[in-house]
């Protein structure tokens, strides 16, 4: 399994689409690592500067309908190329969410009030998340403040993450 802990990037907006995560003009790359410099290049979010704000970030926290739009798996690949293996949001677009788990990455849904509470408590501060896979818990920490939240995963999603993705799982089973 991949590492699911690290510093948090706060993207305080709903409906962030996959064109914003990785613009189509970069889909001519067939090597995933080459997507790294272009992550979130076209994100429409006041004050956001990908070059500055992506430094050392490992976990994204966002709002509703994250990853809507195109089916491009280049969106999870571009996140992974930057060391981001977890996106936590109120909700996800179907294809993006499936793509994350198919790659062995986490797309975790939390209730809107909990996401809101996390933004209120931590946004704008250097914040770290530690993920306890067995206990299904995320612990957000900044300075002396700490908040632990529980997440749910289906057995199927959990199997995909533990198997490292869908290809080996499906080829052995079907």
């Amino acid at each position: 399994m991949k590492s699911f802990s690290g510093n948090v990037l706060f993207l305080d907006r709903s409906d962030i689409n996959t064109d914003e995560i990785i613009p189509a003009k970069y889909l001519t790359e067939v090597e995933r690592q080459k997507l790294k410099p272009y992550l979130l290049e076209d994100l429409k979010l006041a004050g956001f500067d990908p070059k500055r704000d992506l430094q050392e970030k490992r976990v994204v926290l966002s709002r509703a309908n994250f990853g809507c739009g195109s089916s491009r798996e280049h969106a999870p690949w571009a996140l992974e190329a930057n060391g981001i293996h977890v996106v936590v949001a109120e909700s996800f677009a179907r294809i993006f969410r499936q793509n994350m788990f198919n790659c062995g990455l986490l797309a975790l849904e939390l209730p809107a009030d909990i996401v809101d509470g996390l933004f209120t408590a931590f946004a704008g501060r250097a914040t770290r998340v530690d993920t306890d896979w067995q206990a299904r818990q995320l612990t957000f920490r900044s300075g002396g403040d700490q908040r632990t939240v529980h997440f749910d995963l289906s057995d199927f999603d959990s199997d995909l993450v533990e198997a490292g993705g869908w290809v080996e799982y499906a080829d052995s089973k079907y």
Binding site: R72, I95, Q98, N102, V167
Partner: peptide, 20 residues
Amino acid sequence: AGVGTTDLEVGILKGVCAFR
């Protein structure tokens, strides 16, 4: 349904796909 590259890959290989 639209899918990502990994779902496509399994579709090509096995002729199946998982949906809720």
